[in-house]
């Protein structure tokens, strides 16, 4: 009797969770995204060096020909690689769990995540167009954080906490824009790796 009651309650919880939250997000995809971001940040620093700019000493938002386009290209490569591998790992995990990947919850999660990201991305492009380079790294962190807070409703609540960390980091970064690249590497690299490992341990 008691076991039946326990099973009933567990079943109820499982159905509620499964039907309203995307539970196949893999912590590993966070780790991979973090590593890619760190590599990307290093590559950005290297590009500055190639243009004879020491990012931390001389860089005050100026630009030499080709610098911006190289950095934008790098950003696109990093973004595509991180999202691509993340999706691949998550799809793989979903299949292992025997769940469907394309459900109404998945759609809600993607809309909640990518609508703020896209709007923020456009805002960043406008800032780039006006040469406001120093606000781009803090802005990306803030926008990404807000998008995660928004998307957290539809997946593990840990994602929401990661969102708060990223957004706060963005605000701190805006106070020291000279270290934008470092804050960017911490937010998109280190935090992703830490959170990825935590989630991997928790939800394996």
């Amino acid at each position: 009797m008691i076991q039946d009651v326990k099973d009933d309650l567990q079943h109820i919880r499982k159905m509620m969770e499964q039907s309203s939250r995307f539970i196949s997000l893999s912590g590993l995809s966070g780790v991979v995204a973090g590593v890619i971001a760190l590599a990307g940040a290093y590559a950005a620093w290297y590009i500055f060096k190639q243009h004879h700019i020491n990012y931390f000493n001389d860089y005050r938002g100026g630009s030499t020909p080709g610098l911006v386009s190289q950095l934008v290209l790098l950003a696109i490569v990093v973004l595509v690689a991180a999202i691509g591998l993340g999706v691949l790992i998550t799809v793989n995990k979903t299949q292992k769990q025997g769940l469907k990947i394309w459900t109404s919850t998945t759609k809600k999660l993607l809309i909640a995540l990518f609508v703020p990201l896209a709007l923020g991305g456009l805002f960043c492009l406008a800032a780039l167009y006006h040469g406001l380079f120093e606000i781009i790294a803090p802005l990306m962190l803030l926008v990404y954080g807000l998008a995660l807070i928004n998307a957290g409703k539809y997946t593990f609540s840990d994602i929401q906490n990661l969102g708060y960390c990223e957004a706060l980091l963005g605000i701190i970064a805006m106070c020291w824009p000279v270290y934008g690249l470092v804050f960017w590497a911490v937010g998109f690299g280190l935090l992703h790796i830490i959170y990825g490992l935590l989630m991997y341990k928790k939800y394996r």
């Binding site: 009933d8 079943h11 919880r13 159905m15 509620m16 039907s19 109404s104």
Partner: peptide, 22 residues
Amino acid sequence: LGIMSVLVVNTWVDFLEMKEHL
């Protein structure tokens, strides 16, 4: 129990979705 659980956290769930969950 499953049907009600799904419906208290989602509004308007269609038959196919429900079948997948349960």
